[in-house]
Design a protein around this nucleic acid. Structure first.
Length: 426
RNA sequence: CGGAGUGUAGUACAGCGGUAGUAUACGCGAUUCGGGUUCGUGAGACCCGGGUUCGAUUCCCGGCACUCCGACCA
């Protein structure tokens, strides 16, 4: 990854986190258990997790993939605020606790009520009034990665449902429904690209779900997993699914789906895209002048995905008894270099390989700790870096490196040059 | 928000109406070094408040926290 600010290589002896043998007693979900044991995340309180160095690397890689795909469809990145003004949300009737019970609310010193944003249609719609005035300004879309706060009645399942989480939310602004539909389709495709790149595309289905008050349907991206909270009906051939909440004969018929081809599965809602229409633009007065000089409300859509929930889902999908198996695209490091034993020749060779990998741009975690082989292997299994490179007495004479694939368990012996070539090719 | 359960060392557990033990992690000394070596040694804990009692970590009440089930998730 060429992202700025990344430490390309790191010695594990310098890493302040350490692994745990035992699962935390207050977590049951696989994702939380493994991520905490591996030192990726730290539980601050129920539904609130801090990201530690390894976990942040994974999260940032996921974010970067999403960012690239959003940029590719013309999304313009910005950053809105967490603090939200009561009056703004009253205009769209989304302030009262009866309407939205997920609000965290607070007050200024002078008693003015504020909320911590749980989504950002309102502030962005208002902001755009400053910049949108003509049909020539449309269409476009803007997005952010930002912390959302939701006062969930019940946080659960580790990273799957939290009270504070980073969300990528993109909002599209179009002239009318026809234009919106094209934008929407493009972004839907970008979402498919994202899940493919995250390595969970094969288990992720575009799913018809309730459009809420906004439109007939929204599209959810549901990743099949027992850890999911949602029930969906999947058509594996057509690669689409229907959420239980809209699972009726009428809906199936309108979608051309045959009940006998559908399988009931549990799934994680990893993404959700909505057609908003003019619900917010009308309420807040975001309009433009069309070719005929007529004042027209902007037609909007919103598109969300939670990087941390995706991270949790990846762990749910890719793990075994020993730990995590990160897909290459999001792994905290590309390679995990291990030296075994205290032999100076081994250490020297380890240092040499480490420096070479670093110099060649390979992200590498170097387990240079004074630990026994078994402990290093167990930690490496748990942390789940895709490619393990082992240097020990066995490999010292042969001048070949032992390379083990975390996911397949396959072991090969390679020269450094051969290894480098392989690592640099993905 | 309704129901159930659990709070003891950094972590995971045990235990008792008379101030607590094991494992692991940690410090020190040995030993070992390709799948969490072995031994010695040291340090380290009863969620908070109230009640009962001569005495409460233990029993009772309340609170708080965490987990699970359900509801909710615009």
């Amino acid at each position: 990854m060429a992202a700025f600010g990344y430490t390309r290589a790191m010695r594990q002896s310098q890493l302040f986190t350490k692994t745990r043998k035992e699962a935390p007693k207050d977590e049951v979900s696989k994702n939380a258990e493994l991520l905490i044991r591996g030192g990726f995340i730290y539980k601050e309180m129920a539904g609130v997790y801090a990201f530690l160095p390894l976990g942040l690397r994974v999260l940032n890689k996921i974010i970067e993939i999403i960012r690239e795909e959003m940029n590719a469809v013309g999304g313009q990145e910005l950053s809105l605020t967490a603090l939200q003004e009561k009056e703004l949300w009253e205009k769209t009737d989304r302030w009262s606790d009866e309407k939205v019970d997920a609000w965290f609310k607070t007050k200024l010193k002078n008693e003015t009520e504020l909320g911590l944003g749980f989504t950002h249609e309102e502030p962005l719609t208002r902001l755009m009034k400053e910049y949108v005035s003509s049909y020539r300004d449309l269409p476009f879309s803007a997005y952010q990665f930002q912390t959302k706060f939701r006062n969930e009645a019940r946080a659960k399942s580790g990273l799957m449902r939290t009270r504070e989480f980073i969300m990528k939310d993109l909002y599209s602004f179009s002239k009318d429904k026809a234009e919106h539909d094209m934008v929407y389709e493009k972004i839907k495709q970008a979402y498919i690209n994202i899940f493919n790149r995250l390595g969970i595309g094969g288990s992720t289905y575009v799913t018809f779900a309730s459009g809420g008050v906004f439109s007939e349907f929204s599209h959810e991206f549901q990743t099949l997993s027992e850890a999911g909270e949602d029930i969906v009906y999947v058509d594996e051939d057509k690669r689409i699914a229907v959420n239980k909440e809209v699972y009726t004969d009428e809906v199936l018929e309108s979608l051309g789906l045959n009940k006998s081809n559908l399988k009931e599965r549990k799934a994680v809602e990893t993404g959700n895209i909505f057609t908003l229409g003019t619900r917010f633009s009308e309420a807040l007065g975001l309009t433009y002048k069309n070719e005929h000089g007529e004042t027209t409300p902007v037609f909007m859509g919103s598109y969300g995905i939670g990087p941390a929930r995706s991270m949790g889902t990846i762990v749910e999908l890719y793990s075994d008894e020993a730990g995590i198996m990160w897909p290459r695209s999001v792994a905290p490091f590309r390679a995990h270099l291990l030296t075994l034993g205290e032999d100076e020749n081994i250490k020297t060779l380890g240092d040499e390989v480490y420096k070479t990998l670093e110099a060649e741009g390979v992200e590498v975690l170097y387990d240079d700790r004074e630990a026994r082989a078994g402990e290093k292997f167990a930690d490496a299994d748990l942390i789940g870096i895709p490619t393990r490179v082992i240097i020990g007495s066995k490999t010292l004479e042969s001048k070949m490196l032992e390379v083990k694939d975390r996911a397949t368990g396959e072991v090969e012996h390679k020269t450094l040059a051969h290894l480098l070539q392989e690592l640099k090719n993905g």
